[in-house]
């Protein structure tokens, strides 16, 4: 009985470990720490080559938290797809609609410089 229970526990632990690795299947994760001046749209130097259905996770905080900040991706046609940060934070996963290279960008709609830190995973 004890052997059976131990075997069962081992199976459960193995599956749990497998479950933990499923979510960690990211291609890359990049940190950033930037200052965005008033009214500036600040893009990353390099874009992400993405396939349709893949996701880009953006997790960031900014200061001052009262600032009006847009986070998003610029597609190959120069369209900035963005969402606003709230209360000094932004945490979203964006699903890519079609294959292409997408550039992460942060826009500061405030009239003061804003310090933005965080990471992007894709």
């Amino acid at each position: 009985m004890k052997k059976t229970l131990c075997s069962l526990l081992t199976v459960v632990l193995l599956i749990s470990c497998f479950a933990g690795t499923v979510d960690a299947a990211w291609r890359a994760s990049g940190k950033f720490d930037i200052t965005v001046t008033a009214g500036e749209l600040k893009p990353a130097k390099t874009g992400f080559p993405m396939a349709a259905g893949e996701t880009v996770t953006i997790n960031a905080t900014y200061s001052p938290s009262s600032a009006d900040i847009d986070f998003g991706l610029i597609d190959k046609n120069g369209v900035f797809h963005y969402l606003k940060g709230e209360n000094g934070a932004f945490n979203k996963k964006i699903e890519i609609p079609e294959n292409g290279t997408y550039t992460f960008a942060v826009r500061n709609n405030s009239d003061v410089s804003v310090n933005v830190t965080g990471f992007v995973k894709y």
Partner: peptide, 17 residues
């Protein structure tokens, strides 16, 4: 939100991860 933007020169104004 979607907006066509003038992308600044990434080499000059862009940032690295």
């Amino acid at each position: 939100e979607n907006e066509i933007v003038d992308i600044p020169d990434q080499g000059v104004n862009g940032f690295d991860f």
